[in-house]
């Protein structure tokens, strides 16, 4: 009996700290936004584009600090600007998209590095790279919430068009819809999501949150709505558990979230009932037996 009580106390002990409770709900909110976007990104095959936007926001954060404006505005401007630059260079040269993406995002990122080391500020590069949800300020939470709610609203209102755009952009054009608008809608919501996740996960780990939940959903379902539900569940669960466990294990919060999420992915990849590795192996064996 005493043992049970001790375990209970040990379990709830972290929750008495306001900063940890705050970190848990903020990261859960970010996990929700990222999960929604990740379904579109995995289906469209835009993981690399997410990588590009997240790296390209770095100079924006520094410039915003220097100008004294909210970091979200600077980050969004540079993140979205990078996608416009990628689109422009791709249409004007014979280079393939992956090469253009590689050039642009490393260019933006390096420019950010130069700025952060030249402009005197209290920006911690380590926090931009890997997140700092435990030390998040109220202003940063407000910016995260605004960016997240705008993203949710846009996706909620345009979800059918975005899905059509991912599935069959030619048909979208054939029925007279403006695919250019859809293209930039999806890119700008991606940039906003990355801005929302900047303080929690950082620009490197956010890639995981933008790709892994959608991939888990995709391996477990053949219907978009269910895929979305699974993605949201696994992402929010990872954010809550990752943040909570990072306290007990005394490890990086962003890292803990992503490790948890990746473990969920590995389990799914192996045990998914229809598309898991085990099931595929069994199916192959059945075919051999049939012969």
């Amino acid at each position: 009996m005493i043992d049970l009580l001790a375990i209970w106390n040990w379990l709830v002990e972290p929750l008495q700290y306001g900063f940890l409770r705050q970190a848990i709900w903020v990261s859960a909110f970010v996990g929700l936004i990222c999960a929604v976007l990740s379904c579109y990104i995995t289906l469209k095959g835009w993981s690399l584009m997410g990588d590009a936007i997240s790296h390209a926001v770095v100079p924006g954060v520094v410039v915003a600090y220097a100008l004294g404006i909210p970091f979200a505005i600077g980050a969004f401007t540079f993140g979205f600007g990078a996608t416009v630059a990628i689109g422009y260079i791709k249409s004007q040269t014979r280079l393939k998209e992956d090469a253009v993406i590689g050039i642009v995002f490393t260019g933006f990122f390096a420019f950010g590095l130069v700025l952060v080391t030249k402009i005197p500020s209290n920006i911690d590069l380590f926090h931009i790279l890997f997140g700092n949800v435990l030390g998040i300020s109220t202003q940063d939470i407000i910016q995260t919430l605004i960016a997240g709610f705008i993203t949710l609203m846009v996706v909620l209102l345009r979800r059918k068009d975005l899905l059509l755009f991912c599935f069959d952009p030619n048909h979208a054009k054939a029925i007279g819809l403006n695919t250019q608008v859809m293209y930039y809608t999806l890119l700008s919501t991606m940039a906003l999501t990355i801005v929302a996740a900047l303080q929690t996960a950082g620009i490197i780990l956010v890639i995981s949150m933008l790709v892994t939940p959608g991939s888990i959903g995709y391996l477990l379902s053949d219907r978009f709505d269910r895929m979305l539900g699974i993605a949201i569940f696994s992402s929010v669960l990872s954010c809550v558990m990752g943040t909570y466990l990072s306290y007990h294990l005394d490890v990086s919060t962003g890292g803990s979230i992503v490790v948890f999420l990746t473990l969920l992915f590995i389990l799914t990849m192996i045990f998914a009932p229809k598309y898991g590795i085990l099931r595929q192996q069994l199916r192959q064996n059945e075919i051999i037996v049939d012969r």
């Binding site: 068009d161 899905l163 059509l164 069959d168 269910r226 895929m227």
Partner: peptide, 26 residues
């Protein structure tokens, strides 16, 4: 427009009904 089969992502998580409904979006 009825596309060639190799222009379609057949693994996309949509049902036949969903696809036909896309004809009505306009």
């Amino acid at each position: 427009y009825v596309p060639q089969s190799d222009e379609v992502d057949w693994n996309f998580p949509v049902s036949v009904f969903d696809v036909v409904m896309m004809g009505r979006y306009g």
